[in-house]
Amino acid sequence: MMIASTDRLVVRDWTDAPGDLARVYDIYSRDEVMRWLGGGKGRMTDPAEAVERVHAWRDRYDEYAGRWGIWAIEPRDAGHAVGSVLLKPLPGQDGVTPTDDIEIGWHLHPDSQGHGYATEAARAVLDREFATGTRQVYAVVMAGNEPSMAVARRLGMTHLGVRTDWYGGIELDAFVLQRPA
């Protein structure tokens, strides 16, 4: 299912297609990606884990009927996904229970960074979410992840400093974007 699109990109569900599963594994098995996602917890070590991951994402967000989830970013001319964009409730101090705070995030394959894909996909998803009446959306970034901080800034997000409100209280640089008036 397509979630959003731009002239260059389609944001869509990850599927069980071999190309999608290979790309999920290629992204989420890489230390250079996973070090920014919970310090590497959840790094895939077997290609078969890609099926489980895609199904877990689908099951976790199925009740939201496409409003929230983790989706593939696919350039119209690439023929394959370059990464993920996510929109979901941030987990609270226990690291599990969803809060009322909504998070935007992005995970790109290293070969696809530096092309504006994360910013463009996130903008399309943010516009869609703000149209539902959501007042503000957060991005949280691990210290040192300058490329992700740059995406947040390009989106017009305001840096709030280091916060420990979410993901079990770990220190994260937080950014917020208010719905345009």
Rank of each mutant, 00 (worst) to 15 (best):
P47E: 08
W68M: 13
Q93N: 11
D59F: 00
M157F: 10
W68C: 12
K88Y: 15
G83D: 08
R12N: 07
G116E: 02
M34H: 01
M149V: 08
V141K: 00
E103K: 08
P147G: 12
V162L: 08
P89R: 03
R23A: 12
V10L: 15
R76M: 06
R128E: 09
D165C: 07
V137K: 04
R154Y: 04
S112D: 11
V24T: 09
L126T: 02
L155N: 02
V137G: 04
T97E: 01
H115S: 01
A121R: 09
I70S: 02
L9E: 02
V140F: 05
Y25S: 07
W106N: 02
S29K: 15
E49A: 15
R76C: 05
D59T: 10
Y61Q: 06
Q136N: 12
T132D: 10
H80K: 12
E32D: 15
A65H: 15
D16G: 14
Y167F: 14
D13G: 06
E63P: 02
K41R: 15
G133T: 09
F130G: 03
V162M: 10
H55F: 11
I104Q: 05
G168N: 09
G169S: 08
T6G: 08
A22T: 12
H55L: 11
A65K: 15
A17N: 13
V137N: 04
R43P: 00
V54K: 07
Y138V: 11
R179H: 14
V51F: 10
A118P: 01
I170C: 07
G79S: 05
S29H: 13
R8Y: 07
V151L: 06
V11P: 00
K41P: 04
R8S: 06
E103S: 03
V140L: 03
D26R: 00
S29I: 08
F175H: 11
D20C: 02
D77G: 06
G95S: 07
G169H: 00
Y28S: 03
S112F: 04
G19W: 13
Y138M: 12
R153L: 10
T164F: 06
A72K: 07
A78V: 08
M157C: 13
V141M: 05
R53S: 07
H115F: 08
V162P: 03
D173L: 08
G92C: 10
V176P: 12
P91R: 01
V125R: 00
D127V: 03
V176H: 14
G95L: 05
G69H: 09
V54T: 11
A118N: 00
P98W: 03
A22K: 15
H80L: 09
T99E: 06
H107K: 13
G105D: 07
G116I: 08
G66R: 03
P147A: 11
E49S: 13
G38I: 01
W71M: 06
L160E: 10
G116R: 15
L160T: 08
D165M: 09
F175Y: 15
L90A: 14
M34V: 00
D13C: 13
A78G: 09
I70P: 00
I104V: 12
L160G: 04
P91Q: 01
R8A: 05
D16A: 13
